[in-house]
């Protein structure tokens, strides 16, 4: 297989191997926290932070960690960074921490992170791993941002708290409820597949 260029390594996470729309990973936080754009963004950034740090460490230690216990080691590394992120959010932005609730600690079991560690960071150098993590994180964050924006605009008529729709707009409350998350995500995945099919043919 041809080695990807650095820029390709980064870009693949945005669309071709988008963790949510293509790999369907990390759906639990994706569906649960995207009630408002700010939540989506915070979740995406927190996950990206954990992804980057873990990718760095795992890539660094990839020759040291014995194969048999690699998953355990990754989990410990990821859990450490997740806890760091969680405590920082709780200490400095308590409101967001409260809104994201248990989903920040649950980044530990976010399949995107473990998946990238196992599939990429443990097999590649630090530079490539960081680029990959950054791409994946950016893809995750962007997808969450789009998803949460759609839900916030339709469901509350606002975007990042700003009144966006006309004043007498009747908000679709269902969009901020769990069914709205499934509907929106379903439509987004359908749209992504549709675009990909068209592009290929």
């Amino acid at each position: 297989m041809k080695q990807k260029t650095a820029i390709q390594e980064f870009l693949k996470g945005l669309w071709d191997e988008n963790p949510v729309l293509v790999s369907l990973l990390g759906l639990c936080p994706t569906l649960a926290v995207t009630v408002s754009a700010i939540n989506g963004l915070a979740m995406g950034l927190a996950a990206t932070f954990v992804l980057l740090c873990s990718a760095f460490l795992v890539s660094l230690l990839r020759k040291v960690i014995p194969n048999q216990v690699r998953i355990a080691a990754y989990i410990v590394i990821i859990a450490t960074f997740v806890t760091i992120a969680d405590r920082f959010l709780a200490a400095f932005t308590p409101d967001i921490s409260k809104a994201l609730g248990p989903f920040i600690p649950l980044i530990i079991v976010n399949c995107i992170i473990l998946g990238r560690m196992e599939a990429f960071a443990s097999k590649n150098g630090i530079g490539r791993s960081l680029l990959d993590a950054l791409g994946m994180g950016a893809g995750f964050t962007l997808t969450l941002l789009v998803l949460s924006s759609i839900r916030e605009i339709l469901g509350s008529g606002t975007w990042f708290g700003l009144q966006l729709m006309w004043p007498f707009y009747a908000a679709w409350k269902v969009m901020v409820l769990p069914p709205g998350a499934f509907l929106t995500l379903g439509c987004m995945i359908a749209a992504a597949n549709w675009i990909n099919t068209r592009r290929r043919s």
């Binding site: 230690l61 040291v64 960690i65 014995p66 216990v69 355990a72 080691a73 410990v76 590394i77 859990a79 450490t80 806890t83 760091i84």
Partner: peptide, 14 residues
């Protein structure tokens, strides 16, 4: 050794 080290470092950081 590796697991112990990782755990120790992690614990210390936390």
């Amino acid at each position: 050794i590796v697991l112990t080290l990782i755990t120790l470092i992690s614990g210390a950081v936390l």
